[in-house]
Design a protein around this nucleic acid. Structure first.
Length: 532
RNA sequence: GACAGCGUAGCAUAACGGUCAAUGCACCAGCCUCAUAAGCUGGCAGAUGUGGGUUCAACUCCCAUCGCUGUUACCA
């Protein structure tokens, strides 16, 4: 693959979610962000591979399944179905759904393991200590609370284990990792997370155990069947397996030929260490190129409080989409929460923001303008182009380089910023209409001026819809259709052509010579929930 | 405990050390009527956690203090 080739390709991942339970709002958040990022890339005509999936091995899964009287695979299949259905509801367009129980995954894991083994980075050692099954990890004595209960999982005591484990020689890669963080400052983002990782690595890295005994639900260590590969070692490689074409022979060479290295791993901050420390070390050991970027986003709170089962204040993502729709949920998470920082979910704010931005500012803008077009121009779009407007026109001046600014923001995963840029144009449209009062001009028979105003507004709405399409694809579709375009932002073909992007992302491209129909509200106002 | 970060109007955010600290939401008043009782204009409210210091000038730098958060070995 040459450089120019890589410029029009973009591979990104969500985590492979652990199938201990049905998807929660955190997984939905990560996946929405990833989908928006992927859509922004596709919009520019790049080939994109969005990988999501599930991590299905480990003792915790085995036990969860057993508690329900299910075979582990049956349990996993059920959970996977719920993930897929949520992604469908949220209009997530993923390209690969990677399951660590997929038949081709074991071959990749084995081959990778052998590479690392040959490198001399795996060795057998004894591990003793208290093991928390819920964490799938050994705990230091000082970390445990009374009666050897894990501090995170207080309902179950940790188990005493004395076993032989295989270890990965992480300590060997300390210097290499430090050099990586130094030479590639944006490898870990945001910067605050990067500092944490650097801090951690500088304290000295210990080798970590990559196998478990007395565990059936997982892949055996190729060289020693008594041992099962630790879930994380297995799960991270799911990103590699995902790169295989469906009927391709599962070899590392095949998997890595097209899309490697991954451009972006989008993850929650809780699993940053695996992706920013262990993963690059594993890859270095196997002699593979490293991913370009790992972005650890923040967590969601509900009304300012941590969400959790104990507090009983979790948000059910299925319920949220059912009540408000995919675009509403997507918009709130992308616009109101700054990626990287913790963000709060508050239903009143949620409703206020959506009503203000999507129903009032944007939706009603389209509605009022189409209404005028119908009354004043019989629904015919004015025969104008960008050339008819001077560069200091109140809308053209904002719209001219809006595409550039929005794309720039999206490249930095600043979707909130992107939305703000677009909203500035939308709000200016409303102001522009009031300032120029086309209804008065119409009464004065100033038809040309009316048309000039309406065209400028409709075109600004079109551009806004286009640039918002990665965030609210269904609403953008509705706008585009009402503006006379035969267009579907949910279809991949619409993203393939670079020329399409260059055309649509500029101000002044509204198709002329069309008769537009009656306006249909694109977004109904949401009702505030009753006070309780 | 150690290390890191944060603390701006009711809420959410913004401000290369330098115009009256900006924007949105919410709230109040006025205007308009093309529109989803939407829109526009104006108002509201903070002397930027507290106390010092550096500087001609600090939200922006330094010190202290209070409060919150994160990381401290493998939970989105």
């Amino acid at each position: 693959m040459n450089n120019s080739d890589h410029n029009h390709k973009f591979a990104l991942t969500t985590p492979l979610y652990y199938v201990n339970g049905v998807p929660h709002i955190g997984s939905a958040y990560t996946t929405i962000v990833a989908d928006a990022a992927a859509r922004f890339q596709r919009l520019q005509g790049k080939s994109v591979l969005l990988i999501t999936g599930t991590d299905e091995h480990g003792q915790k899964i085995q036990r969860t399944a057993a508690e329900q009287g299910l075979e582990p695979q049956v349990h996993c299949d059920r959970i996977v179905d719920s993930f897929k259905s949520l992604w469908d509801k949220l209009n997530i367009k993923y390209d690969r759904f990677s399951r660590t129980t997929a038949p081709n995954h074991q071959a990749i894991v084995n081959e990778f393991f052998e590479r690392v083994w040959k490198q001399g980075d795996i060795y057998l050692d004894r591990q003793q200590g208290w093991y928390c099954v819920s964490c799938e990890e050994f705990k230091e004595e000082r970390e445990l609370i009374e009666d050897h209960h894990c501090a995170i999982h207080t309902n179950k005591p940790a188990e005493w284990r004395d076993e032989e484990n295989y270890f990965f020689r992480l300590s060997k890669y300390q210097q290499q990792l430090e050099e990586l963080y130094e030479s590639q400052p944006d490898f870990i983002q945001p910067a605050s997370r990067r500092n944490e990782v650097i801090n951690f690595v500088q304290q000295g890295l210990k080798d970590f155990s990559i196998s478990r005994v007395n565990l059936d639900w997982g892949f055996p260590i190729p060289t020693d069947e008594k041992h099962t590969i630790y879930v994380w070692f297995d799960a991270l490689l799911g990103y590699v397996t995902a790169l295989l074409e469906p009927d391709q022979k599962p070899t590392l060479d095949n998997a890595l030929s097209q899309w490697w290295p991954i451009d972006l791993h989008l993850i929650g901050k809780d699993i940053l260490r695996f992706h920013a420390v262990y993963w690059p070390a594993m890859l270095a050991s196997a002699g593979l190129p490293l991913p370009k970027k790992v972005f650890g986003h923040g967590f969601l709170t509900k009304d300012g409080l941590k969400m959790g089962k104990t507090l009983g204040n979790t948000i059910d993502p299925f319920d949220l989409v059912d009540r408000y729709g995919a675009d509403a949920v997507r918009y709130y998470f992308l616009k109101e929460i700054e990626l990287g920082k913790d963000g709060d979910f508050n239903e009143t704010r949620f409703i206020n923001v959506l009503n203000a931005d999507l129903a009032n500012d944007l939706g009603n803008l389209l509605n009022r303008t189409l209404g005028m077009l119908k009354k004043y121009c019989q629904g015919n779009t004015p025969q104008l182009t960008s050339e008819n407007y001077s560069s200091d026109h109140p809308l053209k001046s904002i719209g001219m380089d809006l595409g550039d600014r929005v794309i720039q923001a999206s490249e930095n995963l600043q979707f909130s910023q992107a939305c703000e840029e677009i909203l500035t144009l939308v709000r200016s449209c409303n102001k522009y209409i009031d300032d120029s009062a086309p209804w008065s001009l119409f009464k004065q028979d100033k038809q040309a001026e009316v048309e000039e105003i309406l065209y400028a507004v409709l075109e600004s709405v079109r551009l806004s819809a286009y640039l918002l399409s990665p965030i609210i694809p269904d609403l953008s579709n509705k706008i585009y259709q009402q503006l006379g375009f035969d267009w579907d932002f949910n279809q991949d073909e619409r993203y393939k052509a670079r020329e399409d992007f260059l055309w649509h992302s500029k101000w002044g491209k509204l198709s002329t010579n069309k008769t537009l129909g009656k306006a249909i509200p694109i977004f109904s106002k949401l009702e505030l929930p009753p006070e309780d």
